[in-house]
Design a protein around this nucleic acid. Structure first.
Length: 663
RNA sequence: GCCGUUUUAGCUCAGUAGGUAGAGCGCCACCAUGGUAAGGUGGAGGUCACCGGUUCAAAUCCGGUAAACGGCUCCA
């Protein structure tokens, strides 16, 4: 037999017989490594432990501790799930399944028309089936099958048949468990016994191969870990997510609601939610004005022609409210976006190069007819108010303006203590250019420009094709919601198209007309989405400046201490503090409990002692201890707290801000 | 929009061999005047999402509609 040379991560080399498996190699190194091994990478490609190695290669043994190790475990989970479905529902078709970020999934379909699909109620039985295999430590074989033979095996399953067809090569590695055969995962464990700690979580629809024109399969979700404690921690994390959900907190704290009988996706802001929103609106307007923006108000209704000219109608017709036919030939449209409005503001005067950059901003209300299935609390609504701004610059000002906008964003993030985000450069999809404004040179130039600006600043980012706006590429700042979904918090978009479409000009120093460039930017997204996001990151415990009620005063005795409580209230109101006195005829403990469950930052208890020496007994939200403080000192402290926004200092010292500083 | 599940009091939820509804919290009243997370008693509050069908009789069975939830697709 021929031999091959393996190179290990430390550079050491070893000659082995061709066809040796990674498991053999691991055994050759040490017993403990062989025990911990779950897969290998050969020349960087993940492979099964039992895959024969037939050429010289760099090899790494993947163990339980590696991130890839967890994926291997979860691939095995998906495989075992498929086997269980096959056993319990032999007539069902199977789609694809594999590990994903926080677990695994498998797609199934009952081909019988109108019959039941797999539902959550089936999960316990499937789980039991899987556990039986694990308990017996059933072995998963890896064998090579002829493509033809495999195609024959799956001839009754249209999805699997399509997957076989898509496979390259004549011999295809498949995994076998008893008479169940499947393929197309990454590496899978040879022994099922490692899959001790898993659970099946939910069932949901998913389009076959992610295309909405394809039939819909039932996707079963599950998760798996190597350790019981990790699985438990994961369950805890999922419970915590529910507690953070802005819809739950929104109801508990009486912030907002949606009344389906009045309209899905149309939010009502209750006084407390409105207070948070108003505080943020005032903040961002002041901040933008301080950064050179001019705030405007523009109509939420406009002649449909405006959106035809901008291209929005063409691209988003289906997601816009139908136009209102006014009967005299005029069609009015609820605006889905503010850019055309701000273009009107720009066009209203002849502009000189001396004015540039011109920065127009607005908290612009807009309406989008979001698909019913997409609506979700405040995160996805049909009427929203966007923190929108457009800056009009000369081409040579782009770089500088980009940096200014990024600096503004990071300043704002520091004030809200937002730390967990990443930068995404969103390019057009090179395989589907028809979706976009047709000008290859423009795309190449502007995408390179964005990337160049980020590189100059030395900032980390990732690139995503197909995420651009139809008119240009963008820098998106991505965050995660409590549920773990990606969400764009801020965005900077380069636009060479709209100025063209609307014939925007400015007069240069040469006296000639020139075309400006438009930069669309949003710092704190929509009021709806931003407040949903803040609710989740703060878990409803809003920092004092945002808290609807900042201070709750509880008199020990409603008769004896009410006058003192009211006196304190008056003092605090004078300082602009949102304060309330709980004058209900209830016991102290009851009121304190409510003040805590309502997450009010400061609770003051006042009785004989406090009244006597002009002090207050202060209890901060979430703390058990109380502190007696001089009234004047307390007022100074709460006022200072409010002035500090949400800053803890961590975001203020961010890498990004210091990079921006240096440049 | 698609697949699945769900919809009973303001909130969280009970309520199946079909016989016109319950609990806790909250709300209101009275009693208790209390020192750091729920004091006591009583009361009000529901066309059981909506529309239609089966039945002597429907919260309960069937069909449709709407909305919410979990995803998928989409997200200017």
């Amino acid at each position: 037999m021929a031999s091959v040379t393996l190179t290990f991560p430390d550079g050491a080399k070893q000659q082995v017989e061709s066809g040796t498996t990674a498991l053999d190699v691991a055994k050759g190194i040490s017993n403990s490594l062989a025990k911990a091994a779950v897969a290998a990478t050969v020349n960087g490609n993940p492979v099964d432990l039992l895959a024969p190695i037939k050429q010289d290669a760099k090899i790494t043994i993947v163990t339980k501790k590696d991130a890839l190790g967890l994926a291997v475990l979860r691939n095995t989970g998906a495989f075992l799930l498929a086997a269980a479905v096959h056993k319990s529902f032999p007539s069902y078709n199977l789609g694809e399944g594999k590990a994903q970020e926080d677990g695994f999934f498998y797609d199934t379909d009952n081909p019988a028309n109108g019959e039941n699909q797999i539902a959550v109620t089936d999960l316990p039985a499937l789980e039991k089936e899987m556990k039986a295999a694990v308990k017996d430590d059933d072995k998963i074989e890896r064998v090579l099958m002829d493509k033809e033979e495999l195609a024959k095996h799956f001839e009754d399953d249209p999805y699997k048949a399509a997957l076989v067809k898509a496979q390259a090569g004549v011999q295809i590695p498949v995994h076998k468990l008893g008479d169940f055969i499947d393929f197309g995962y990454g590496p899978i464990l040879p022994d099922t016994k490692l899959l001790k700690h898993f659970s099946l979580l939910s069932v949901a629809g998913a389009y076959w191969q992610g295309k909405s024109s394809n039939p819909m399969l039932q996707r079963i979700y599950g998760t798996a870990f190597f350790g019981a404690d990790e699985l438990e921690a994961d369950a805890k994390r999922r419970a915590d997510i529910k507690e953070r959900d802005h819809r739950t907190i929104g109801r508990e704290l009486d912030l907002f609601f949606v009344d389906p009988s009045v309209g899905a996706g149309l939010a009502y802001w209750m006084p407390k939610g409105a207070t948070i929103r108003r505080t943020i609106e005032r903040y961002i307007i002041d901040k933008e004005i301080a950064n050179g923006y001019e705030h405007v108000y523009t109509p939420i209704l406009a002649n449909l022609d405006l959106y035809k000219q901008s291209g929005h109608w063409d691209h988003y017709k289906d997601d816009m409210f139908p136009p209102m036919d006014m009967g005299d030939g005029e069609m009015l449209e609820l605006r889905p976006m503010n850019c055309p409005s701000h273009i009107q503001i720009y066009k209203h005067h002849i502009r000189s190069y001396r004015e540039l950059p011109i920065r127009i901003a607005e908290l612009g209300m807009m309406h989008r007819y979001e698909k019913s299935g997409a609506l979700s609390g405040l995160q996805r609504v049909r009427e929203m108010t966007l923190n929108d701004g457009h800056t009009f610059v000369a081409p040579d000002q782009i770089q500088d303006e980009f940096k200014k906008i990024l600096t503004l964003m990071m300043d704002v993030y520091a004030d809200f203590d937002i730390n967990d985000y990443s930068f995404r450069l969103s390019y057009r999809d090179p395989k589907n250019t028809a979706k976009y404004f047709d000008d290859d040179a423009m795309w190449n130039k502007s995408q390179a420009m964005l990337k160049g600006a980020m590189d100059d600043l030395g900032l980390d980012y990732y690139e995503a094709e197909g995420e651009a706006a139809f008119y240009g590429p963008k820098l998106d700042v991505q965050t995660k919601t409590a549920l773990g979904n990606d969400e764009t918090l801020s965005t900077i978009q380069l636009d060479f198209m709209m100025p063209e479409k609307f014939h925007l000009t400015y007069v240069g120093d040469d006296g000639e007309e020139h075309r400006p460039v438009m930069i669309h930017r949003g710092v704190i997204s929509t009021m709806e989405r931003f407040i949903a996001y803040l609710t989740e990151i703060y878990k409803g415990a809003f920092p004092t400046w945002l808290s609807p009620i900042q201070c709750e005063i509880i008199p020990v005795n409603t008769d004896l201490h009410m006058d003192y409580a009211l006196e304190i209230k008056k003092r605090l109101l004078k300082e602009g503090v949102r304060v309330e006195v709980d004058d209900r005829n209830e016991k102290m403990g009851y009121k304190i409990r409510e003040s805590q469950t309502q997450k009010i930052p400061y609770t003051l208890v006042v009785g004989d002692e406090e009244k006597k020496d002009s002090s207050v007994s202060v209890r901060r939200y979430g703390e058990d201890k109380t502190e007696s403080q001089d009234l004047e000192m307390f007022i100074d402290a709460i006022v200072a707290d409010i002035k500090n926004y949400s800053r803890t200092g961590s975001a203020k010292n961010s890498k990004v801000l210091s990079a921006l500083d240096k440049n």
